[in-house]
Amino acid sequence: MSRLTRRSALGLTATAVAGLGLAGTAYAATASGPANGVVPAAGDGHTGHTGGMDHTGHATPAPFDEVYQGRRIEGAPAQGGAHGGHHGGYQVRIDGKELHVMRNGDGTWISVINHYETFANPRAVARAAVVELQGATLVPLA
C-alpha cells in the first residue's frame, strides 16, 4: 500500500474519510461479496434503485466515493447517463484513474483488472481491483 496515496487521500470528502476506518480491516479479502468484512454502505450497488433504470431493466448502481485499503475509489453514472453500451453507462476511478468496467447481461460486473470473474456491482469490482493492484497505478493501455 502506498503511504503517499493514503496520505493524499486524507484530505478527501466526508465519504472518503469515513471509508478510511474500513480500509485496514478487509486486507486480503476477495472483495467479491459481503464476506470481505465491510458493511455495505448506503447506496451500495446491491440496492442501487436510486440511480434509475436502463433499457435492459437493470438498476444503474448509485454513485460511491470511498477509500478502500488506502485507495480512493469512485463510481458514478457516466456523463450523459446510461448510453446502453457495455460499460453499463458507468464510470469507475481508482485514485482518479479510470478503471475500465463492463456490465454483464445479468447485471454483474467485471473490470480490465479482474476480467474472468464477476462481481455484484461496480463498488465490488473496484475493491477487487484495489486488492489486485497491490498499490500499483492504473495506466491507459500502452
Binding site: V112, N114, H115, Y116
Partner: peptide
C-alpha cells in the same frame, strides 16, 4: 468458457492470477 455452470476456462485464468486474470492475459 465459464460464465455459467462449473466454470472451466475462466476459472483457470483466475487460478493462475497475475496478468492471466486481466484483459492482457
Amino acid at each position: 468458457e465459464g460464465w455459467r455452470g462449473v466454470n472451466l476456462h475462466n476459472r483457470v485464468h483466475v487460478w493462475v492470477g497475475g496478468q492471466m486474470g486481466t484483459g492482457v492475459s
